[in-house]
Design a binder for these strands. Structure first.
Lengths: 194, 194, 194, 194
DNA sequence: CATGAATGAGAGTTCATTCAT
DNA sequence: GATGAATGAACTCTCATTCAT
């Protein structure tokens, strides 16, 4: 019953995911997950040996799905600037949301688990986002919407600002206005200079 | 013997500080601190009721000292650009250091303890850094070293980039080259445009 | 395995009961019960959360069994006076016994836990005893063995005397002669007046 | 400074007394008393080695004062029945009071500390009360107010009823009406029989 | 495969008691 | 005498992890 087994594994991961979203990483115990899943204590150990293992799997799923979702939400005939604006808006929404996905849990997790190398979840996520933005900027430059000498660096800069906003939001809290200000600033950097 | 008592309190806080630096916040137990301090279990409770309380005090000390240290390390006859470069260099050093101070612990702590309002440690730290940078930029603009239309926003942007670099460093790791690239980028934003 | 679980719960309660009998209520710790039961620290918490909870359950069991036991021990063809004498004799036995059941523990417990209202263990125990005695007196009056104008009050009075003897026995100690004297006195109150 | 020392000892005992009145015996720690007295932790040990020792001293004081107080509160020209009624009324008041003196603490204490023999506090208290009541009854019989064949036993009976009411009040709670009923019943036993 | 009872390690916390000052 | 800091024992409670069924 490798099928049923895979089914259950997926069920556990999805349930665990919502637990991590709510409580972060360090606050989640095997017991928490067992209870959220309504399975037996021993049952969980049949599939996973620790919260760490579970979390890594959750992230793996996350990555798979992320690629899908991203592409779908882009309107067919949008210009690069529009798409970038859309992307930033989406980031802003999640930034300020009360349910910030797995951000906090990931940070907590990777504070302690530096492993991963090239496959590091956060690294891959960051790099692929940089790449997307870079492409958008390049397209924007081509179409004359943007002015930018080094799209790669500009993209990277934007992502670091977003990362800074994210951590600020998760720790000290941040106002919508402040987020808008920062986003506007980076957008102006692409447009205003002629 | 309020004197001796204060002495010991300070000793505990300093010892605890290094424990937090090494293990973050959530991994530190009262027992850890007790053992690091070489005092008795009950002895610690004479001074502090929880790791949270201790950590808050550590931050308070940190803040007091931070103000002092900062001013002293600035060379007398340096131009704004020099000072800013110095500041960023210092940030870079801490960013990449194996002993990243209390950054990680603070993040972990404030993931869960949102209290603080205006007096929020991270907020104050961030805001005062923004202010310093803003002043430097304004001075730089005046002296012709910099070009910048809105020093406040530029300063804030720099700080968010730094914050992004910080969290990146603490989680996925980051290369010196990458940090240099980002710092160079923001500096160019101030200089290159004329 | 609700069966085995119930079995163990009962085992714990019975063991705990003897611990309470020996040490009262306040002197009993979860650790004491754990050790008496020869189970693990955490094992006890699987069934009960506190000594208070355990004690309340012990009392509940006590009550269930009390009803059974009482009826059985009455000889078939005994007159009211005989039965009352028997009852008092039984009370006396327990009063003076080195193993005074849960009396002491109950007192200690209810000094602090006044909850219960109508279902208060001691109240129910007292009231039902009063009722039994009242019935006996009324039967005795009918059969001419007793003289009594208000059986209810006489019964209540007897029980308060018994209660007084009980606490006296548990605190300052009391001689058998003294108990006999008091019992005789209340019996005479029912008989002698004609 | 045996004088100052005695002074302080007395101060501690009086303070401790009120602590015992409020919290019973077992719930009182040396720390509680230290704090109530506003003295140093070590300071208390200079005078007493344990709560038990303190409590015994408190009881000794209690006994000394009890004798004084009792006599004073009796009206000059009252008949035996009046005085007995007065005594019972006073008992009732204390019975129902939210601040039941040291009753609870004493019970708790003597559950565990059976020592005392002839000098047992509760025994002496009980016996002297019995004696007083006996004298009153005898006086009442003489004056024709009471009818009683054995004043000693009647007095003892009354005291046991009071003791029963006391413990009932402290554990399950008791209504004023119930107390009145019992008191009336024992008084009628002295009067009604002709 | 699945269960959930059981174990035991470990963290938190409170106090009685001592002792240097 | 008096202080109160310091110690360490004792207790409570929670989980990760195992294992018989």
């Amino acid at each position: 019953m490798s099928d049923k087994s895979a089914q259950k594994k997926k069920y556990i991961l999805e349930t665990a995911r919502s637990v991590f979203m709510e409580k972060g990483f360090k606050n989640v115990t095997m017991k928490d997950i067992v209870e959220a899943c309504n399975i037996s204590r021993g049952g969980l150990y049949l599939y996973f040996a620790s919260t760490k293992e579970i979390f890594l799997e959750v992230l793996r799923l996350e990555q798979l799905e992320a690629d899908d979702v991203f592409e779908k939400s882009i309107p067919e005939e949008a210009g690069p600037a529009d798409i970038l604006a859309l992307f930033l808006k989406e980031q802003k929404r999640e930034l300020l949301s009360k349910k910030p996905g797995l951000t906090k849990a990931s940070y907590e997790f990777f504070f302690e688990n530096h492993e991963g190398g090239k496959n590091h979840f956060l690294k891959k996520q960051f790099d692929s986002a940089v790449l997307v933005i870079q492409k958008l900027i390049e397209a924007g430059v081509e179409s004359g919407e943007f002015y930018c000498e080094d799209a790669r660096r500009a993209a990277s800069n934007i992502m670091y600002v977003l990362e800074g906003l994210k951590i600020a939001s998760q720790t000290r809290g941040i106002s919508e206005a402040a987020v808008d200000r920062e986003i506007l600033y980076v957008m102006q950097g692409l447009i205003a200079e002629e």
